[in-house]
Design a protein around this nucleic acid. Structure first.
Lengths: 339, 339
DNA sequence: TATACTTATGTAATCGATTACAACACGAGG
DNA sequence: CCTCGTGTTGTAATCGATTACATAAGTATA
């Protein structure tokens, strides 16, 4: 049915071994022969059958990317970085959606193992990591991005959450802010724990009190941001400044303020972690911490490729896990004052 | 090295054929045997090698999803729909990024063919479609989503762009709007052509003049929306109402208005195509046309599965291409008036 | 009891590419 | 003229699962 190496071999008048060698850039082929084979490949319209190759080499040329959610610019910008690097190296990327659910995440890991991916990049959906161990057990190296998890360790690419948050809060303090609320995701997640840590450290360094009743934690979503901002605003003593630990929480918080015409705290200033393409048009936003999302993806892909080489060369002494922390930036927004 | 059917067969005291039959739910297996084999599968920790299976069956259990861009909530919500359906049917989804570039798109199609996907779902990056033909030529069925293209035809899932736009504009007219600007993407793209068509039809039906100087076309991105809104606002006679043909253009347009404190046309009302999670907090937005993005993905996946069956059963008489148009909705926003 | 048919399982060829090993040609060195 | 090394290509086994066909046991029919 389809064209195989045999057909190409016949067409070029050589053996299948020779065709295979040309396909794999084996140096020990006469230039003239190589030329002829390449021509036959063109003329026959031959396309390699990766299934057959994989069976023999036990390498599929695909890597898995497991993210908690697809419709999420943060994850997908990371994904672009991953894809950019991997594609130029000839790899295909299978993007899987864990649907913010450990069960789903499990299931997708099964999928990746079955598909025999050569490696996996994971943005964890929760702090649970035990189930990730099945990948290295199956000979599949893993790189984590954005968050660390419990009961599993591997290479990881992370943002400098502590210092990023620290510098944003300090910036606000130095421009006159005196009292801060905080809206964050669950402290079970390492990235939020770190951001909260940076927040506390900044207040502490400047002798500003940490007021528990204006420190709120929820999940990572728009709705949560909405609810938590509501809690802050109907509280006894609403803050004038709020640090919000990710973009989606900020969107939700902004939504609450807009819908309620921000009656409570007219001069409110928001600083947020993550700088997305829409951050600049969110109301009340004074400053955001930018993560190098694309680079995080690229770095993760590069680390993974190294590991794949290692695993493939069967080197028994695997060097220990490495973490990379990428620097964050600080983006000031012209003070947009909606309502 | 890894555990194969042979090992399972030995463990269960049967032949590899029997193991394979259990794996594939062949009905002609004694329940007792089936039980024993299943147990052996569990105990040996066997995992099927898809490469080997694919080689034999020439089915990989993966489908490709080619999108113009990853960090795009519209495309990714469609992707979620696709994944939801496909995953429950045991398929893996390879998501590829065409990077809004026909060359890239070509390249990713090559990738999909090499990976021997069983089918492909494509959201085209441009109006060019000739290069898609290589997929069906390679025995891979295709379903288009969102847009049609030139020089290629296949099944497609589309939104009812004309009526969606029509009803939104009519709604505005009936609530008192008298003069409309329009901001759209290139008319080369079928979806924008259709939305413009709906716009014109509404004005015509209500005897409202189409004023060329307040009808602007660009590309599909935030920047373009920004620039086109600027053009409208610095023009001789800026409109009070603007229909904007997609979410990203609307974001850009809103950004321009906010940054310039909307001095020109204080009462401006915007109606937009696409209702995303952030649409409700975009300033000036009065009404948006919602597309059933998730369902579009689901439908596309279902159509593709049918075609895959057809192709696989080798039925020679392939039934002609089918289009599905999905109804849009109308979402009113509480009039949020920033600035 | 012989025949035919069913049901359950085994045997072995097969998918398409890779690769260890063999083979062959050619020239250099002795 | 023989041997050896080098460079180039061919032969055939192999990866792991599937499946057409063969086989064997059991059951119904005449």
């Amino acid at each position: 049915m389809a064209i195989t190496v045999k057909d190409v071999a016949a067409h070029a008048g050589v053996s299948t071994a020779t065709v295979s060698r040309v396909l794999n850039n084996d140096p020990g082929i006469k230039p003239e022969t190589r030329r002829r084979v390449k021509e036959s490949i063109k003329n026959t319209g031959y396309r390699i059958n990766k299934a057959a190759r994989s069976l023999k080499t036990s390498r599929t040329g695909t890597v898995g990317l497991l993210v908690p959610e697809l419709a999420n610019d943060f994850f997908m910008t990371v994904a672009q970085g991953v894809e950019d690097v991997l594609r130029t190296r000839g790899y295909g990327v299978i993007i899987c959606n864990a649907n913010e659910d450990e069960k789903y995440e499990q299931d997708r890991i099964d999928l990746l193992i079955e598909q025999c991916v050569d490696g996996a990049i994971i943005i964890p959906a929760s702090s649970a990591g035990a189930h990730f161990n099945r990948l290295p057990e199956a000979g599949i190296p893993v790189v984590l991005v954005d968050r660390l998890v419990d009961d599993f360790n591997s290479d990881a690419v992370l943002a400098d959450n502590i210092n990023g948050t620290y510098s944003a809060v300090v910036h606000l303090i130095e421009t006159g802010c005196k009292r801060f609320g905080f809206i964050g995701g669950s402290l079970e997640l390492s990235n939020f724990r770190e951001r909260y840590e940076g927040f506390k450290r900044a207040l502490s360094d400047y002798n500003i009190a940490l007021e528990d009743e204006i420190i709120k934690f929820g999940n990572v979503h728009i709705n949560s941001g909405y609810e938590l901002m509501k809690e802050l605003m109907i509280g006894p003593n609403p803050p004038e400044n709020v640090f919000i630990a990710n973009y989606f929480l900020q969107v939700g918080a902004t939504k609450f303020l807009i819908e309620n015409n921000n009656r409570v705290q007219p001069g409110i200033r928001i600083a947020g972690f993550d700088d997305m393409s829409l951050s600049s048009i969110l109301g009340f936003s004074s400053i955001t911490v930018s993560q190098p999302m694309h680079s995080m993806g690229e770095k993760a892909a590069e680390m993974l490729l190294e590991r794949i080489e290692e695993f493939a060369s069967g080197s028994t002494q695997i060097c220990p896990s490495r973490f990379i922390r990428l620097k964050t930036g600080l983006i000031e927004h012209r003070s947009v004052k909606p309502v």
